[in-house]
Write a protein that binds this DNA or RNA. Structure first.
Length: 636
DNA sequence: TTAGGGTTAG
Protein backbone atom coordinates (compact mmCIF):
# COMPACT_ATOMS: atom_id res chain seq x y z
CA UNK A 1 0.00 0.00 0.00
CA UNK A 2 1.16 3.49 -0.80
CA UNK A 3 2.02 5.71 2.16
CA UNK A 4 2.81 9.41 1.99
CA UNK A 5 6.25 10.02 3.44
CA UNK A 6 6.14 12.81 6.03
CA UNK A 7 8.86 15.48 6.01
CA UNK A 8 10.11 14.23 9.37
CA UNK A 9 8.76 11.17 11.04
CA UNK A 10 7.75 12.63 14.39
CA UNK A 11 5.53 9.74 15.21
CA UNK A 12 6.54 6.26 15.94
CA UNK A 13 4.48 3.60 17.61
CA UNK A 14 3.81 3.38 21.37
CA UNK A 15 5.68 0.97 23.60
CA UNK A 16 3.14 -1.82 23.44
CA UNK A 17 3.09 -1.20 19.72
CA UNK A 18 6.09 1.08 19.62
CA UNK A 19 6.49 4.50 21.39
CA UNK A 20 4.23 7.54 21.17
CA UNK A 21 6.14 10.22 23.02
CA UNK A 22 7.27 11.99 19.90
CA UNK A 23 3.82 12.73 18.63
CA UNK A 24 3.83 16.46 18.07
CA UNK A 25 1.03 18.60 16.81
CA UNK A 26 1.87 21.34 14.38
CA UNK A 27 0.85 24.58 16.06
CA UNK A 28 0.60 26.27 12.67
CA UNK A 29 -2.15 23.96 11.53
CA UNK A 30 -5.00 25.96 10.07
CA UNK A 31 -8.64 25.20 10.50
CA UNK A 32 -10.86 24.60 7.56
CA UNK A 33 -14.24 26.39 7.56
CA UNK A 34 -16.82 25.04 9.99
CA UNK A 35 -18.81 22.05 8.91
CA UNK A 36 -22.28 22.74 7.64
CA UNK A 37 -25.48 21.41 9.14
CA UNK A 38 -25.95 17.69 9.64
CA UNK A 39 -29.11 15.57 9.76
CA UNK A 40 -31.19 15.94 12.94
CA UNK A 41 -29.48 14.42 15.99
CA UNK A 42 -30.22 14.62 19.71
CA UNK A 43 -29.57 18.25 20.61
CA UNK A 44 -27.01 19.32 23.19
CA UNK A 45 -29.74 20.36 25.70
CA UNK A 46 -31.42 16.96 25.22
CA UNK A 47 -28.11 15.22 25.83
CA UNK A 48 -27.52 17.34 28.91
CA UNK A 49 -31.00 16.50 30.16
CA UNK A 50 -30.29 12.80 29.70
CA UNK A 51 -26.99 13.26 31.52
CA UNK A 52 -28.78 14.90 34.44
CA UNK A 53 -31.23 11.99 34.65
CA UNK A 54 -28.35 9.52 34.60
CA UNK A 55 -26.72 11.36 37.52
CA UNK A 56 -30.03 11.54 39.47
CA UNK A 57 -30.56 7.81 38.88
CA UNK A 58 -27.13 7.07 40.32
CA UNK A 59 -25.83 5.74 37.02
CA UNK A 60 -23.07 8.31 36.51
CA UNK A 61 -20.43 5.62 36.86
CA UNK A 62 -21.98 3.51 34.11
CA UNK A 63 -19.32 3.84 31.42
CA UNK A 64 -21.32 2.45 28.49
CA UNK A 65 -24.14 4.90 29.23
CA UNK A 66 -21.79 7.88 29.41
CA UNK A 67 -20.05 6.63 26.27
CA UNK A 68 -23.37 6.76 24.47
CA UNK A 69 -23.93 10.32 25.56
CA UNK A 70 -20.52 11.15 24.20
CA UNK A 71 -21.54 9.49 20.97
CA UNK A 72 -24.58 11.80 20.74
CA UNK A 73 -22.32 14.80 21.26
CA UNK A 74 -19.95 13.55 18.57
CA UNK A 75 -22.89 13.34 16.18
CA UNK A 76 -24.05 16.89 16.89
CA UNK A 77 -22.92 19.71 14.62
CA UNK A 78 -19.68 21.37 15.71
CA UNK A 79 -19.85 22.18 19.39
CA UNK A 80 -17.34 23.31 21.97
CA UNK A 81 -15.56 20.25 23.25
CA UNK A 82 -15.44 21.22 26.93
CA UNK A 83 -18.66 19.48 27.90
CA UNK A 84 -17.73 16.34 25.94
CA UNK A 85 -14.33 16.36 27.59
CA UNK A 86 -15.87 16.59 31.07
CA UNK A 87 -18.06 13.57 30.22
CA UNK A 88 -15.08 11.67 28.88
CA UNK A 89 -12.99 12.47 31.93
CA UNK A 90 -15.74 11.13 34.19
CA UNK A 91 -15.21 7.67 32.71
CA UNK A 92 -12.71 5.75 34.86
CA UNK A 93 -11.47 3.34 32.22
CA UNK A 94 -12.47 4.74 28.82
CA UNK A 95 -13.05 2.08 26.19
CA UNK A 96 -11.97 2.43 22.57
CA UNK A 97 -15.58 3.37 21.78
CA UNK A 98 -15.57 6.25 24.29
CA UNK A 99 -12.14 7.41 23.20
CA UNK A 100 -13.04 7.30 19.53
CA UNK A 101 -16.08 9.46 20.20
CA UNK A 102 -14.00 11.95 22.15
CA UNK A 103 -11.51 12.02 19.26
CA UNK A 104 -14.43 12.71 16.97
CA UNK A 105 -15.67 15.53 19.22
CA UNK A 106 -12.23 17.12 19.00
CA UNK A 107 -12.08 16.57 15.24
CA UNK A 108 -15.32 18.50 14.82
CA UNK A 109 -14.44 21.27 17.27
CA UNK A 110 -12.39 24.38 16.60
CA UNK A 111 -9.32 22.53 17.88
CA UNK A 112 -9.01 19.37 15.76
CA UNK A 113 -5.33 18.83 16.67
CA UNK A 114 -6.46 18.02 20.21
CA UNK A 115 -7.65 14.68 18.87
CA UNK A 116 -4.07 13.76 18.03
CA UNK A 117 -2.99 14.41 21.60
CA UNK A 118 -5.81 12.21 22.85
CA UNK A 119 -4.74 9.50 20.42
CA UNK A 120 -1.23 9.75 21.79
CA UNK A 121 -2.46 9.28 25.34
CA UNK A 122 -4.76 6.48 24.18
CA UNK A 123 -1.75 4.57 22.94
CA UNK A 124 0.06 5.17 26.23
CA UNK A 125 -2.86 3.77 28.24
CA UNK A 126 -2.79 0.65 26.08
CA UNK A 127 -6.29 1.13 24.64
CA UNK A 128 -6.03 -0.43 21.21
CA UNK A 129 -7.17 1.80 18.36
CA UNK A 130 -9.48 0.40 15.70
CA UNK A 131 -10.54 1.43 12.17
CA UNK A 132 -12.95 4.07 13.55
CA UNK A 133 -10.08 5.71 15.44
CA UNK A 134 -8.17 6.33 12.22
CA UNK A 135 -11.18 7.64 10.35
CA UNK A 136 -11.77 10.31 13.01
CA UNK A 137 -8.09 11.15 13.34
CA UNK A 138 -7.76 11.64 9.59
CA UNK A 139 -10.87 13.80 9.62
CA UNK A 140 -9.20 15.97 12.26
CA UNK A 141 -6.02 16.23 10.17
CA UNK A 142 -8.02 17.16 7.06
CA UNK A 143 -9.89 19.89 8.91
CA UNK A 144 -6.67 21.27 10.38
CA UNK A 145 -4.86 20.92 7.02
CA UNK A 146 -2.22 19.08 9.05
CA UNK A 147 -0.42 17.18 6.31
CA UNK A 148 2.58 16.09 8.32
CA UNK A 149 0.51 14.77 11.21
CA UNK A 150 -1.94 13.17 8.80
CA UNK A 151 0.89 11.37 7.05
CA UNK A 152 2.05 10.04 10.40
CA UNK A 153 -1.45 8.79 11.18
CA UNK A 154 -1.40 7.19 7.73
CA UNK A 155 1.85 5.39 8.61
CA UNK A 156 0.47 4.10 11.91
CA UNK A 157 -2.80 3.01 10.28
CA UNK A 158 -0.84 0.97 7.74
CA UNK A 159 1.45 -0.52 10.39
CA UNK A 160 -1.53 -1.59 12.51
CA UNK A 161 -3.27 -3.12 9.54
CA UNK A 162 -6.05 -0.59 9.05
CA UNK A 163 -4.79 0.82 5.76
CA UNK A 164 -7.00 -1.45 3.73
CA UNK A 165 -10.28 -0.39 5.33
CA UNK A 166 -12.31 1.54 2.80
CA UNK A 167 -13.37 4.20 5.34
CA UNK A 168 -9.75 4.79 6.31
CA UNK A 169 -8.59 4.93 2.73
CA UNK A 170 -11.33 7.33 1.73
CA UNK A 171 -10.43 9.56 4.65
CA UNK A 172 -6.81 9.45 3.43
CA UNK A 173 -7.77 10.42 -0.12
CA UNK A 174 -9.68 13.33 1.37
CA UNK A 175 -6.79 14.30 3.66
CA UNK A 176 -4.27 14.52 0.81
CA UNK A 177 -6.78 16.40 -1.31
CA UNK A 178 -7.40 18.91 1.51
CA UNK A 179 -3.65 19.42 1.80
CA UNK A 180 -3.26 19.88 -1.99
CA UNK A 181 -1.39 16.60 -2.49
CA UNK A 182 -3.57 15.44 -5.36
CA UNK A 183 -0.97 13.00 -6.63
CA UNK A 184 -1.11 11.18 -3.29
CA UNK A 185 -4.91 11.03 -3.45
CA UNK A 186 -4.65 9.70 -6.98
CA UNK A 187 -2.18 6.97 -6.05
CA UNK A 188 -4.36 5.79 -3.18
CA UNK A 189 -7.35 5.79 -5.50
CA UNK A 190 -5.58 3.88 -8.26
CA UNK A 191 -3.95 1.32 -5.99
CA UNK A 192 -7.27 -0.02 -4.76
CA UNK A 193 -9.41 -0.30 -7.83
CA UNK A 194 -11.17 -3.42 -6.61
CA UNK A 195 -12.41 -2.07 -3.29
CA UNK A 196 -13.80 1.35 -4.11
CA UNK A 197 -17.20 2.52 -3.03
CA UNK A 198 -19.11 5.64 -4.10
CA UNK A 199 -17.33 7.72 -1.44
CA UNK A 200 -13.93 6.68 -2.84
CA UNK A 201 -15.01 7.96 -6.24
CA UNK A 202 -16.52 11.10 -4.79
CA UNK A 203 -13.37 11.85 -2.80
CA UNK A 204 -11.26 11.55 -5.94
CA UNK A 205 -13.76 13.67 -7.85
CA UNK A 206 -13.41 16.38 -5.20
CA UNK A 207 -9.62 16.13 -5.46
CA UNK A 208 -9.71 16.80 -9.21
CA UNK A 209 -12.22 19.61 -8.82
CA UNK A 210 -10.15 21.34 -6.12
CA UNK A 211 -7.07 21.03 -8.29
CA UNK A 212 -9.02 22.68 -11.13
CA UNK A 213 -8.59 19.53 -13.25
CA UNK A 214 -12.10 19.71 -14.67
CA UNK A 215 -11.27 17.47 -17.62
CA UNK A 216 -10.05 14.73 -15.27
CA UNK A 217 -13.11 15.23 -13.06
CA UNK A 218 -15.43 14.90 -16.07
CA UNK A 219 -13.69 11.69 -17.14
CA UNK A 220 -13.92 10.23 -13.63
CA UNK A 221 -17.57 11.26 -13.37
CA UNK A 222 -18.27 9.42 -16.63
CA UNK A 223 -16.47 6.30 -15.39
CA UNK A 224 -18.22 6.14 -12.01
CA UNK A 225 -20.13 2.89 -11.60
CA UNK A 226 -22.60 4.64 -9.29
CA UNK A 227 -23.38 8.31 -8.73
CA UNK A 228 -25.16 9.69 -5.72
CA UNK A 229 -26.35 13.22 -4.90
CA UNK A 230 -22.86 14.15 -3.69
CA UNK A 231 -21.25 13.00 -6.96
CA UNK A 232 -23.60 15.30 -8.89
CA UNK A 233 -23.22 18.18 -6.46
CA UNK A 234 -19.45 17.90 -6.61
CA UNK A 235 -19.45 17.95 -10.39
CA UNK A 236 -21.82 20.93 -10.52
CA UNK A 237 -19.84 22.91 -7.96
CA UNK A 238 -16.67 21.96 -9.87
CA UNK A 239 -18.01 23.61 -12.99
CA UNK A 240 -19.23 26.63 -11.05
CA UNK A 241 -15.99 27.10 -9.11
CA UNK A 242 -14.04 26.99 -12.32
CA UNK A 243 -16.23 29.57 -14.04
CA UNK A 244 -17.85 27.02 -16.37
CA UNK A 245 -21.28 28.20 -15.41
CA UNK A 246 -23.34 27.03 -18.37
CA UNK A 247 -21.87 23.54 -18.03
CA UNK A 248 -22.77 23.59 -14.32
CA UNK A 249 -26.37 24.36 -15.23
CA UNK A 250 -26.39 21.68 -17.93
CA UNK A 251 -25.11 19.15 -15.39
CA UNK A 252 -27.89 20.22 -13.00
CA UNK A 253 -30.42 19.69 -15.79
CA UNK A 254 -29.11 16.18 -16.38
CA UNK A 255 -29.19 15.47 -12.66
CA UNK A 256 -32.86 16.40 -12.52
CA UNK A 257 -33.65 14.39 -15.64
CA UNK A 258 -32.16 11.36 -13.90
CA UNK A 259 -34.59 11.98 -11.04
CA UNK A 260 -31.81 12.51 -8.53
CA UNK A 261 -32.63 13.91 -5.11
CA UNK A 262 -31.30 17.45 -4.63
CA UNK A 263 -29.64 18.75 -1.52
CA UNK A 264 -28.56 22.09 -0.13
CA UNK A 265 -25.12 21.96 -1.74
CA UNK A 266 -26.61 21.34 -5.18
CA UNK A 267 -29.00 24.24 -4.84
CA UNK A 268 -26.39 26.65 -3.50
CA UNK A 269 -24.03 25.91 -6.42
CA UNK A 270 -26.79 26.22 -8.98
CA UNK A 271 -27.97 29.50 -7.46
CA UNK A 272 -24.42 30.79 -7.70
CA UNK A 273 -24.28 29.91 -11.41
CA UNK A 274 -27.66 31.57 -12.03
CA UNK A 275 -26.46 34.65 -10.15
CA UNK A 276 -23.17 34.92 -11.98
CA UNK A 277 -24.87 34.56 -15.34
CA UNK A 278 -27.70 36.90 -14.32
CA UNK A 279 -30.36 34.33 -15.22
CA UNK A 280 -33.36 35.46 -13.22
CA UNK A 281 -35.82 32.95 -14.69
CA UNK A 282 -33.48 30.10 -13.84
CA UNK A 283 -32.80 31.47 -10.37
CA UNK A 284 -36.52 31.77 -9.75
CA UNK A 285 -36.99 28.19 -10.87
CA UNK A 286 -34.42 27.07 -8.28
CA UNK A 287 -36.16 29.18 -5.64
CA UNK A 288 -39.47 27.52 -6.45
CA UNK A 289 -37.75 24.13 -6.08
CA UNK A 290 -36.49 25.17 -2.66
CA UNK A 291 -40.05 26.01 -1.67
CA UNK A 292 -41.81 23.07 -3.29
CA UNK A 293 -39.35 20.56 -1.84
CA UNK A 294 -39.76 22.20 1.57
CA UNK A 295 -36.06 22.86 2.02
CA UNK A 296 -35.45 24.72 5.26
CA UNK A 297 -34.21 28.24 4.52
CA UNK A 298 -30.79 27.73 6.07
CA UNK A 299 -28.25 30.53 6.30
CA UNK A 300 -26.38 29.17 3.25
CA UNK A 301 -29.45 28.76 1.11
CA UNK A 302 -30.97 32.07 2.17
CA UNK A 303 -27.70 33.89 1.49
CA UNK A 304 -27.37 32.24 -1.93
CA UNK A 305 -30.93 33.36 -2.77
CA UNK A 306 -30.30 36.95 -1.64
CA UNK A 307 -27.17 37.03 -3.77
CA UNK A 308 -28.96 35.52 -6.77
CA UNK A 309 -31.80 38.06 -6.70
CA UNK A 310 -29.37 40.95 -6.25
CA UNK A 311 -27.18 39.79 -9.14
CA UNK A 312 -30.25 39.24 -11.33
CA UNK A 313 -31.51 42.77 -10.81
CA UNK A 314 -34.24 42.12 -8.22
CA UNK A 315 -32.80 44.00 -5.30
CA UNK A 316 -36.24 44.43 -3.70
CA UNK A 317 -36.63 40.63 -3.55
CA UNK A 318 -33.17 40.40 -1.93
CA UNK A 319 -34.15 42.97 0.65
CA UNK A 320 -37.35 41.09 1.47
CA UNK A 321 -35.52 37.78 1.89
CA UNK A 322 -32.86 39.45 4.02
CA UNK A 323 -35.53 40.97 6.25
CA UNK A 324 -37.21 37.60 6.73
CA UNK A 325 -34.10 35.48 7.29
CA UNK A 326 -34.44 34.05 10.80
CA UNK A 327 -30.70 33.59 11.14
CA UNK A 328 -27.96 35.52 9.36
CA UNK A 329 -24.21 35.10 9.34
CA UNK A 330 -21.52 37.53 8.24
CA UNK A 331 -21.92 36.42 4.62
CA UNK A 332 -25.63 37.16 4.62
CA UNK A 333 -24.77 40.74 5.57
CA UNK A 334 -21.87 40.89 3.10
CA UNK A 335 -23.99 39.84 0.10
CA UNK A 336 -26.71 42.29 1.10
CA UNK A 337 -24.24 45.18 1.38
CA UNK A 338 -22.54 44.24 -1.92
CA UNK A 339 -25.92 43.79 -3.62
CA UNK A 340 -27.16 47.22 -2.55
CA UNK A 341 -23.84 48.70 -3.67
CA UNK A 342 -24.09 47.15 -7.14
CA UNK A 343 -27.53 48.73 -7.55
CA UNK A 344 -26.15 52.14 -6.61
CA UNK A 345 -28.11 52.18 -3.35
CA UNK A 346 -25.17 53.61 -1.43
CA UNK A 347 -27.05 55.07 1.52
CA UNK A 348 -29.01 51.86 2.11
CA UNK A 349 -25.78 49.86 1.95
CA UNK A 350 -24.20 52.11 4.56
CA UNK A 351 -27.29 51.83 6.77
CA UNK A 352 -27.12 48.01 6.59
CA UNK A 353 -23.41 48.17 7.38
CA UNK A 354 -24.20 50.26 10.47
CA UNK A 355 -26.80 47.70 11.61
CA UNK A 356 -24.25 44.95 11.03
CA UNK A 357 -21.79 46.74 13.32
CA UNK A 358 -24.51 47.50 15.89
CA UNK A 359 -25.41 43.80 16.04
CA UNK A 360 -21.83 43.06 17.05
CA UNK A 361 -20.47 41.56 13.81
CA UNK A 362 -16.86 42.13 12.89
CA UNK A 363 -16.38 43.29 9.29
CA UNK A 364 -13.95 41.50 6.98
CA UNK A 365 -12.25 42.61 3.77
CA UNK A 366 -15.26 41.68 1.60
CA UNK A 367 -17.55 43.78 3.82
CA UNK A 368 -15.46 46.82 2.97
CA UNK A 369 -15.39 45.99 -0.73
CA UNK A 370 -19.18 46.35 -0.49
CA UNK A 371 -19.06 49.49 1.64
CA UNK A 372 -16.43 51.28 -0.46
CA UNK A 373 -18.10 50.09 -3.67
CA UNK A 374 -21.37 51.58 -2.38
CA UNK A 375 -19.67 54.92 -1.73
CA UNK A 376 -17.98 54.82 -5.11
CA UNK A 377 -21.09 54.08 -7.16
CA UNK A 378 -23.27 56.55 -5.28
CA UNK A 379 -20.58 59.25 -5.30
CA UNK A 380 -20.48 59.40 -1.49
CA UNK A 381 -16.93 60.68 -1.35
CA UNK A 382 -16.64 61.85 2.26
CA UNK A 383 -18.35 58.65 3.49
CA UNK A 384 -15.91 56.64 1.37
CA UNK A 385 -12.92 58.43 2.82
CA UNK A 386 -14.29 57.90 6.35
CA UNK A 387 -14.91 54.18 5.85
CA UNK A 388 -11.51 53.60 4.26
CA UNK A 389 -9.98 55.12 7.39
CA UNK A 390 -12.28 53.04 9.60
CA UNK A 391 -11.26 49.87 7.79
CA UNK A 392 -7.54 50.42 8.14
CA UNK A 393 -7.39 52.13 11.52
CA UNK A 394 -10.23 50.65 13.60
CA UNK A 395 -10.51 47.19 12.05
CA UNK A 396 -6.86 46.82 11.01
CA UNK A 397 -7.82 45.42 7.63
CA UNK A 398 -5.00 45.78 5.16
CA UNK A 399 -6.41 47.32 1.97
CA UNK A 400 -6.25 45.03 -1.02
CA UNK A 401 -6.28 45.90 -4.70
CA UNK A 402 -10.10 45.85 -4.80
CA UNK A 403 -10.36 48.37 -1.94
CA UNK A 404 -7.94 50.68 -3.70
CA UNK A 405 -9.91 50.10 -6.88
CA UNK A 406 -13.12 51.36 -5.20
CA UNK A 407 -11.32 54.38 -3.74
CA UNK A 408 -9.58 55.36 -6.97
CA UNK A 409 -12.83 54.93 -8.87
CA UNK A 410 -14.74 57.00 -6.31
CA UNK A 411 -12.19 59.81 -6.12
CA UNK A 412 -11.47 59.77 -9.84
CA UNK A 413 -15.07 59.90 -10.99
CA UNK A 414 -15.87 62.63 -8.47
CA UNK A 415 -13.01 64.66 -9.95
CA UNK A 416 -10.48 64.28 -7.14
CA UNK A 417 -7.82 63.09 -9.56
CA UNK A 418 -4.85 64.39 -7.57
CA UNK A 419 -6.08 62.67 -4.41
CA UNK A 420 -6.50 59.44 -6.38
CA UNK A 421 -2.92 59.71 -7.67
CA UNK A 422 -1.67 60.37 -4.15
CA UNK A 423 -3.50 57.32 -2.84
CA UNK A 424 -1.93 55.15 -5.54
CA UNK A 425 1.50 56.50 -4.70
CA UNK A 426 1.03 55.59 -1.02
CA UNK A 427 -0.09 52.03 -1.74
CA UNK A 428 1.73 49.23 0.06
CA UNK A 429 1.25 46.89 -2.90
CA UNK A 430 2.25 47.85 -6.44
CA UNK A 431 -0.80 49.12 -8.34
CA UNK A 432 -2.05 46.73 -10.99
CA UNK A 433 -2.98 47.79 -14.54
CA UNK A 434 -6.70 47.62 -13.68
CA UNK A 435 -6.20 50.35 -11.11
CA UNK A 436 -4.41 52.61 -13.57
CA UNK A 437 -7.12 51.87 -16.11
CA UNK A 438 -9.73 52.99 -13.54
CA UNK A 439 -7.90 56.29 -13.16
CA UNK A 440 -7.58 56.56 -16.91
CA UNK A 441 -11.36 56.20 -17.15
CA UNK A 442 -11.75 59.07 -14.67
CA UNK A 443 -9.37 61.20 -16.77
CA UNK A 444 -11.64 60.54 -19.73
CA UNK A 445 -14.74 61.67 -17.81
CA UNK A 446 -13.10 64.86 -16.65
CA UNK A 447 -11.25 65.58 -19.89
CA UNK A 448 -7.91 65.43 -18.10
CA UNK A 449 -5.86 64.94 -21.22
CA UNK A 450 -2.40 65.48 -19.74
CA UNK A 451 -2.77 63.02 -16.84
CA UNK A 452 -4.72 60.62 -19.04
CA UNK A 453 -1.97 60.59 -21.63
CA UNK A 454 0.65 59.94 -18.96
CA UNK A 455 -1.33 57.03 -17.48
CA UNK A 456 -2.27 55.70 -20.92
CA UNK A 457 1.38 55.51 -21.96
CA UNK A 458 2.27 53.84 -18.67
CA UNK A 459 -0.50 51.30 -19.24
CA UNK A 460 0.58 50.52 -22.79
CA UNK A 461 4.01 49.66 -21.39
CA UNK A 462 2.68 47.70 -18.40
CA UNK A 463 0.13 45.70 -20.33
CA UNK A 464 0.65 46.09 -24.09
CA UNK A 465 -1.59 43.18 -25.03
CA UNK A 466 -4.72 44.61 -23.41
CA UNK A 467 -6.72 46.26 -26.15
CA UNK A 468 -8.90 48.17 -23.65
CA UNK A 469 -6.06 50.51 -22.70
CA UNK A 470 -5.57 51.56 -26.33
CA UNK A 471 -9.31 52.11 -26.64
CA UNK A 472 -9.42 54.27 -23.51
CA UNK A 473 -6.40 56.36 -24.52
CA UNK A 474 -7.82 56.82 -28.00
CA UNK A 475 -11.17 57.86 -26.49
CA UNK A 476 -9.39 60.52 -24.46
CA UNK A 477 -7.76 61.84 -27.61
CA UNK A 478 -11.10 61.60 -29.41
CA UNK A 479 -12.78 63.61 -26.67
CA UNK A 480 -10.08 66.25 -27.09
CA UNK A 481 -10.62 66.00 -30.87
CA UNK A 482 -6.93 65.12 -31.31
CA UNK A 483 -7.64 62.91 -34.31
CA UNK A 484 -4.01 62.37 -35.29
CA UNK A 485 -3.34 60.87 -31.88
CA UNK A 486 -6.46 58.73 -32.20
CA UNK A 487 -5.11 57.32 -35.47
CA UNK A 488 -1.63 56.82 -33.97
CA UNK A 489 -3.00 54.83 -31.01
CA UNK A 490 -5.26 52.85 -33.28
CA UNK A 491 -2.25 51.99 -35.44
CA UNK A 492 -0.36 50.89 -32.35
CA UNK A 493 -3.29 48.68 -31.43
CA UNK A 494 -3.23 47.02 -34.84
CA UNK A 495 0.57 46.57 -34.67
CA UNK A 496 0.27 44.90 -31.26
CA UNK A 497 -2.06 42.39 -32.84
CA UNK A 498 -4.69 42.72 -30.14
CA UNK A 499 -8.36 42.81 -30.78
CA UNK A 500 -10.99 44.74 -28.89
CA UNK A 501 -12.58 42.34 -26.38
CA UNK A 502 -15.90 41.24 -27.85
CA UNK A 503 -18.77 42.70 -25.90
CA UNK A 504 -21.85 40.54 -25.50
CA UNK A 505 -25.28 40.96 -23.99
CA UNK A 506 -27.69 38.29 -22.96
CA UNK A 507 -31.37 38.20 -22.30
CA UNK A 508 -33.58 35.38 -21.06
CA UNK A 509 -36.87 34.65 -22.74
CA UNK A 510 -39.17 31.74 -21.99
CA UNK A 511 -36.42 29.68 -20.42
CA UNK A 512 -33.90 30.25 -23.21
CA UNK A 513 -30.82 32.45 -23.04
CA UNK A 514 -30.22 34.63 -26.08
CA UNK A 515 -26.71 36.02 -26.45
CA UNK A 516 -25.82 38.83 -28.84
CA UNK A 517 -22.55 40.36 -29.97
CA UNK A 518 -22.26 43.70 -31.75
CA UNK A 519 -23.61 43.56 -35.30
CA UNK A 520 -24.90 40.03 -34.67
CA UNK A 521 -26.95 38.57 -37.51
CA UNK A 522 -26.92 34.96 -36.34
CA UNK A 523 -30.14 34.99 -34.35
CA UNK A 524 -33.06 33.18 -35.93
CA UNK A 525 -35.20 36.31 -35.56
CA UNK A 526 -32.46 38.59 -36.82
CA UNK A 527 -34.62 40.21 -39.51
CA UNK A 528 -37.29 41.16 -37.02
CA UNK A 529 -34.66 42.40 -34.57
CA UNK A 530 -33.15 44.76 -37.17
CA UNK A 531 -36.62 45.98 -38.14
CA UNK A 532 -37.25 46.71 -34.48
CA UNK A 533 -33.93 48.58 -34.32
CA UNK A 534 -35.12 50.77 -37.17
CA UNK A 535 -38.39 51.39 -35.38
CA UNK A 536 -36.47 52.27 -32.22
CA UNK A 537 -34.29 54.64 -34.26
CA UNK A 538 -37.34 56.48 -35.62
CA UNK A 539 -39.12 56.69 -32.26
CA UNK A 540 -36.08 57.96 -30.36
CA UNK A 541 -35.19 60.46 -33.10
CA UNK A 542 -38.72 61.85 -32.79
CA UNK A 543 -38.02 62.52 -29.15
CA UNK A 544 -34.99 64.61 -30.07
CA UNK A 545 -32.13 62.10 -29.72
CA UNK A 546 -28.91 62.57 -31.65
CA UNK A 547 -26.16 59.94 -31.45
CA UNK A 548 -23.00 60.45 -29.40
CA UNK A 549 -20.26 58.67 -31.30
CA UNK A 550 -17.29 59.64 -29.09
CA UNK A 551 -16.95 56.07 -27.86
CA UNK A 552 -16.40 54.71 -31.34
CA UNK A 553 -12.76 54.20 -31.97
CA UNK A 554 -12.83 53.21 -35.59
CA UNK A 555 -11.46 55.64 -38.08
CA UNK A 556 -14.66 55.68 -40.08
CA UNK A 557 -17.20 58.20 -41.25
CA UNK A 558 -19.89 59.65 -38.97
CA UNK A 559 -22.71 57.65 -40.57
CA UNK A 560 -20.83 54.40 -40.19
CA UNK A 561 -20.04 55.30 -36.58
CA UNK A 562 -23.73 55.77 -35.94
CA UNK A 563 -24.44 52.38 -37.43
CA UNK A 564 -21.72 50.75 -35.33
CA UNK A 565 -23.31 52.16 -32.19
CA UNK A 566 -26.80 51.19 -33.29
CA UNK A 567 -25.72 47.57 -33.47
CA UNK A 568 -24.08 47.35 -30.04
CA UNK A 569 -24.97 44.07 -28.38
CA UNK A 570 -27.23 45.63 -25.74
CA UNK A 571 -29.25 47.39 -28.47
CA UNK A 572 -29.86 44.06 -30.19
CA UNK A 573 -30.85 42.49 -26.87
CA UNK A 574 -33.17 45.41 -26.12
CA UNK A 575 -34.78 45.15 -29.55
CA UNK A 576 -35.25 41.42 -29.03
CA UNK A 577 -36.66 42.10 -25.57
CA UNK A 578 -39.21 44.51 -27.02
CA UNK A 579 -40.18 41.85 -29.55
CA UNK A 580 -40.67 38.93 -27.18
CA UNK A 581 -42.00 40.47 -23.99
CA UNK A 582 -45.46 41.80 -23.36
CA UNK A 583 -46.39 45.47 -23.15
CA UNK A 584 -45.25 46.90 -19.84
CA UNK A 585 -42.96 43.96 -19.02
CA UNK A 586 -39.54 44.69 -17.60
CA UNK A 587 -36.61 43.96 -19.94
CA UNK A 588 -33.53 42.54 -18.24
CA UNK A 589 -30.17 42.46 -19.93
CA UNK A 590 -26.75 41.27 -18.77
CA UNK A 591 -23.71 42.77 -20.51
CA UNK A 592 -20.11 41.75 -19.93
CA UNK A 593 -18.54 45.17 -20.56
CA UNK A 594 -19.53 48.61 -19.34
CA UNK A 595 -22.38 50.19 -21.24
CA UNK A 596 -21.24 53.04 -23.51
CA UNK A 597 -22.49 56.59 -23.08
CA UNK A 598 -24.65 56.50 -26.17
CA UNK A 599 -26.32 53.18 -25.35
CA UNK A 600 -26.96 54.52 -21.86
CA UNK A 601 -28.70 57.56 -23.33
CA UNK A 602 -30.68 55.47 -25.79
CA UNK A 603 -31.80 53.08 -23.03
CA UNK A 604 -33.18 56.02 -21.06
CA UNK A 605 -35.15 57.24 -24.07
CA UNK A 606 -36.45 53.75 -24.93
CA UNK A 607 -37.66 53.33 -21.34
CA UNK A 608 -39.74 56.48 -21.82
CA UNK A 609 -41.06 56.17 -25.37
CA UNK A 610 -41.80 52.45 -25.12
CA UNK A 611 -42.96 52.73 -21.49
CA UNK A 612 -40.72 49.88 -20.34
CA UNK A 613 -38.53 49.40 -17.34
CA UNK A 614 -35.13 48.23 -18.57
CA UNK A 615 -32.61 46.74 -16.15
CA UNK A 616 -29.07 46.35 -17.42
CA UNK A 617 -26.31 44.66 -15.46
CA UNK A 618 -23.08 45.81 -17.03
CA UNK A 619 -19.51 44.86 -16.16
CA UNK A 620 -19.55 47.23 -13.24
CA UNK A 621 -23.05 47.79 -11.85
CA UNK A 622 -26.80 47.85 -12.42
CA UNK A 623 -28.68 50.49 -14.38
CA UNK A 624 -32.45 50.69 -13.86
CA UNK A 625 -33.92 52.71 -16.73
CA UNK A 626 -37.42 54.05 -16.17
CA UNK A 627 -39.37 57.04 -17.49
CA UNK A 628 -36.33 58.38 -19.30
CA UNK A 629 -34.06 58.27 -16.25
CA UNK A 630 -31.41 55.88 -14.96
CA UNK A 631 -30.93 54.85 -11.34
CA UNK A 632 -27.23 55.70 -11.65
CA UNK A 633 -28.22 59.34 -12.29
CA UNK A 634 -25.74 59.23 -15.18
CA UNK A 635 -22.91 58.70 -12.72
CA UNK A 636 -21.14 55.48 -13.60
C1' DT B 1 -22.52 -3.91 20.63
C1' DT B 2 -22.57 0.88 19.85
C1' DA B 3 -19.76 5.00 15.61
C1' DG B 4 -17.15 6.05 10.63
C1' DG B 5 -15.40 8.58 4.96
C1' DG B 6 -17.19 12.33 0.35
C1' DT B 7 -20.55 17.75 -1.86
C1' DT B 8 -21.90 24.51 -0.67
C1' DA B 9 -20.87 30.18 -1.99
C1' DG B 10 -21.17 34.59 -0.77
Amino acid sequence: MFAYKPKSLLLSLPKHISNSQNFLVNSNSQLSPPLSSLPPRPSIPQTKQAHAQIIVSGLAADSPLISHLLCFLALSPSTPFHYSLSLYQSIKYPSVFATNNMIRCFAKSDSPPQSLLLFSSMLRTCVKPNNHTFTFLLQACSRALALNEGAQVHTVAVKLGFGGYVFVRNALIHLYCSCSRIECSKRLFEENASSRDVVTWNSMLTAFVRDEQIGAAEKLFEEMPERDVISWSTMISGYVQNGRLEEGLECFKQMREKGMRLNEATLVSVLSASAQLGLLEHGRLVHSLVESLNFPLTVSLGTALIDMYAKCGCIEQSKLLFKNMPKKDIWTWNVMICGLASHGLGKEALAIFQRFIDEGFHPVNVTFIGVLGACSRAGLVSEGRRHFKLMTEKYSILPEMEHYGCMVDMLGRAGFLDEAVQLIEKMTVPPDPVLWATLLGACKIHGSIELGEKIGKKLLKLDPTHDGHYVQLASIYAKARKWEDVIRVRRLLVEQNTNKAAGWSLIEAQGTVHKFVAGDREHERSLEIYKMLEKIGIRIAESGYSPNVSSVLHDIGEEEKENAIKEHSERLAMAFGLLVTGAGDCIRIVKNLRVCEDCHEVSKIISKVFEREIIVRDGSRFHHFKDGKCSCLDYW
